[in-house]
Simulated scan of single mutants.
Amino acid sequence: MIRTWLSHKGDEPIQGDEQQIGPWLEQEAGTIWIDIDLRSFSHAKAEQLLKRFACHPLAIIDTFRPRHPPKIELFDEQIFMLYRGIQHCIGDLKFEHMQLAMFVGKNYLITLHDGQSQGIENLLQQPFHKYLQHPLSLASRIMHSASTLYLNQLLEFEDQLSELEEQLSSHGDDQLLSTITRYKTDILRLNRIFSYHLSLSKKLLHLEQEQSVNNIAIDQPVLQDLHERFERLHSLSSMYYDICGDLVDGYLSISSHKLNNTMRVLTLITAIFVPLSFLAGIYGMNFEVIPELHHPNGYFILLGTMLLIAVSLIAIFKWKRWF
Rank of each mutant, 00 (worst) to 15 (best):
2 I>A: 11
3 R>E: 04
7 S>D: 10
7 S>L: 02
13 P>C: 07
13 P>K: 08
14 I>M: 14
15 Q>S: 11
15 Q>I: 12
17 D>S: 10
18 E>S: 11
19 Q>L: 14
19 Q>E: 15
21 I>L: 07
27 Q>C: 03
28 E>W: 13
29 A>P: 01
37 D>A: 04
38 L>D: 07
39 R>L: 10
42 S>H: 09
45 K>A: 11
46 A>Q: 01
47 E>L: 08
54 A>Y: 14
59 A>G: 14
61 I>F: 03
74 L>E: 03
74 L>A: 12
76 D>Q: 11
76 D>T: 04
76 D>S: 11
80 F>M: 03
81 M>C: 07
87 Q>A: 10
89 C>W: 00
91 G>A: 05
92 D>G: 09
93 L>S: 12
97 H>A: 15
98 M>Y: 02
98 M>T: 12
99 Q>Y: 01
101 A>K: 09
103 F>K: 00
104 V>G: 00
106 K>M: 12
112 L>N: 00
114 D>S: 13
115 G>K: 00
115 G>W: 05
119 G>H: 06
120 I>C: 08
123 L>N: 04
130 K>G: 10
133 Q>G: 13
136 L>F: 11
140 S>R: 01
142 I>K: 04
145 S>K: 09
148 T>C: 12
151 L>H: 14
152 N>D: 12
154 L>S: 07
155 L>E: 14
164 L>A: 11
165 E>R: 07
168 L>I: 08
170 S>D: 08
174 D>S: 13
177 L>G: 15
178 S>G: 05
178 S>Q: 15
181 T>H: 04
182 R>W: 03
188 L>W: 08
191 N>R: 13
198 L>R: 15
201 S>P: 05
203 K>R: 15
203 K>W: 02
203 K>D: 11
205 L>M: 10
207 L>Y: 00
207 L>N: 03
211 Q>K: 13
211 Q>N: 14
211 Q>H: 15
216 I>Q: 09
217 A>I: 10
220 Q>S: 15
222 V>H: 01
224 Q>H: 15
224 Q>L: 14
226 L>H: 11
231 E>W: 09
235 S>L: 15
237 S>Q: 04
237 S>D: 04
238 S>T: 11
241 Y>M: 09
243 I>Y: 09
243 I>D: 10
245 G>E: 13
245 G>I: 05
252 L>M: 05
254 I>A: 15
257 H>K: 11
257 H>W: 13
258 K>S: 02
261 N>Y: 00
264 R>A: 13
264 R>Y: 01
266 L>P: 07
267 T>R: 01
268 L>P: 06
271 A>E: 03
272 I>P: 13
273 F>A: 04
275 P>I: 09
278 F>W: 06
279 L>W: 04
280 A>F: 00
280 A>E: 02
282 I>M: 04
283 Y>A: 02
285 M>P: 00
285 M>F: 10
285 M>T: 08
286 N>M: 05
289 V>H: 12
289 V>W: 10
290 I>C: 03
291 P>G: 04
293 L>A: 09
295 H>L: 15
296 P>Q: 09
297 N>F: 12
298 G>T: 02
302 L>A: 11
305 T>Y: 05
312 S>P: 06
313 L>P: 07
313 L>T: 09
315 A>R: 06
315 A>G: 01
317 F>E: 08
317 F>K: 08
